[in-house]
Amino acid sequence: MSYEQLAYVYDQLMADAPYDSWIEFLCKEMDRFQAPGRRVLDLACGTGELSIRLLKQGFEVTGVDMSEDMLAVAAEKAGEEGLSFPLFQQDMSQLDGLPSYDIVTIFCDSLNYLESSEAVKQTFSGIYRHLNPNGLLLFDVHSTYQMDHVFLDQTFTWNEDKIAYIWNSFQGEEPYSIEHDLTFFVLDENSGQYNRIEEFHKQRTYSVHDIEHWLVTAGFDVLSITADFTGESPEATSQRIFFTCRKK
């Protein structure tokens, strides 16, 4: 997984992503569980779309992402809005040298890009160290149902004037894992030709029980587990699972 070329068309591909719903979830949970402040660490911030929206709502935001290109796009977008915020290139499982925050977010199933349970556990431990007392961790992951019944052996396509893709999903080597083989065709407006971009991504998820156990082991109180932006408990066919946790 590189995101080196994909970073520059990512926002076009994510134009319909539910950013407003993620922010609504964050605001509701921080009020419901009394977050100690509005200082947010946005892990896997990508092109900064969520971070910038939070900045506009008065949050103090820091963004972290593994991709240098994603961070470059985020900085450029913020500058175009007359905004700026700290951006760091780090692996979320190896957080280091950052201050403490009131809220940490990992949205858009970004935790599923960690390829081992140990990396997930290290991420939870690192977040715990970087949270203020009573600080909140909010994140979502793909459900095991999503991996085994929605993604598995499926082909997804999308075609618009300036960009198209073919997305094939296959069973990964580990339980509840998927390998995504993506091919994008992006219009170069200067030449009138389409550039081909190929990306290979892996995602892996875990049972709700396992994730909850790792959170508790890391020192968190698990305050809420819901599904699909509904605020209701997960069901057998739920596709996106949300966790709200508090540092003890």
Results as ranks from 00 to 15, higher is better:
residue 114 L to E: 01
residue 153 D to F: 11
residue 113 Y to H: 15
residue 160 E to V: 11
residue 126 G to T: 02
residue 120 V to A: 06
residue 94 Q to N: 12
residue 93 S to F: 06
residue 100 S to K: 15
residue 115 E to T: 13
residue 97 G to H: 05
residue 120 V to T: 11
residue 140 D to T: 08
residue 147 M to N: 00
residue 132 N to C: 13
residue 112 N to L: 05
residue 161 D to G: 08
residue 112 N to Q: 01
residue 116 S to T: 15
residue 160 E to W: 03
residue 104 V to P: 00
residue 128 Y to T: 09
residue 166 I to L: 12
residue 123 T to A: 10
residue 150 V to I: 15
residue 137 L to W: 00
residue 109 D to H: 01
residue 102 D to P: 11
residue 105 T to I: 00
residue 161 D to Y: 12
residue 170 F to R: 12
residue 168 N to V: 13
residue 99 P to D: 03
residue 160 E to Q: 13
residue 144 T to S: 06
residue 106 I to G: 04
residue 125 S to F: 00
residue 143 S to F: 02
residue 171 Q to M: 11
residue 154 Q to I: 10
residue 111 L to K: 02
residue 99 P to I: 04
residue 161 D to V: 14
residue 133 P to N: 10
residue 125 S to A: 14
residue 165 Y to M: 05
residue 156 F to P: 03
residue 105 T to S: 05
residue 159 N to P: 01
residue 139 F to L: 12
residue 97 G to F: 06
residue 154 Q to F: 06
residue 114 L to I: 09
residue 120 V to C: 10
residue 112 N to R: 04
residue 148 D to A: 12
residue 104 V to K: 01
residue 144 T to H: 02
residue 153 D to M: 09
residue 133 P to M: 02
residue 119 A to V: 09
residue 133 P to Y: 04
residue 102 D to R: 00
residue 165 Y to T: 07
residue 146 Q to N: 15
residue 135 G to S: 10
residue 109 D to Q: 03
residue 130 H to K: 05
residue 112 N to I: 04
residue 99 P to A: 08
residue 148 D to G: 11
residue 170 F to C: 12
residue 145 Y to R: 06
residue 120 V to F: 05
residue 111 L to M: 12
residue 115 E to Q: 15
residue 92 M to T: 01
residue 118 E to S: 13
residue 126 G to E: 01
residue 115 E to G: 10
residue 101 Y to I: 06
residue 100 S to M: 14
residue 152 L to F: 07
residue 150 V to C: 08
residue 159 N to G: 04
residue 131 L to T: 03
residue 134 N to Q: 15
residue 89 Q to H: 00
residue 143 S to K: 04
residue 147 M to S: 01
residue 111 L to H: 03
residue 143 S to T: 04
residue 109 D to G: 09
residue 123 T to V: 06
residue 146 Q to V: 09
residue 164 A to D: 03
residue 104 V to E: 09
residue 147 M to W: 09
residue 93 S to E: 08
residue 160 E to N: 08
residue 129 R to Q: 14
residue 113 Y to K: 03
residue 157 T to E: 13
residue 146 Q to I: 09
residue 152 L to N: 10
residue 111 L to R: 05
residue 100 S to P: 01
residue 164 A to V: 06
residue 155 T to R: 15
residue 89 Q to C: 13
residue 106 I to Q: 04
residue 169 S to Q: 14
residue 93 S to M: 08
residue 119 A to N: 11
residue 151 F to A: 00
residue 139 F to V: 09
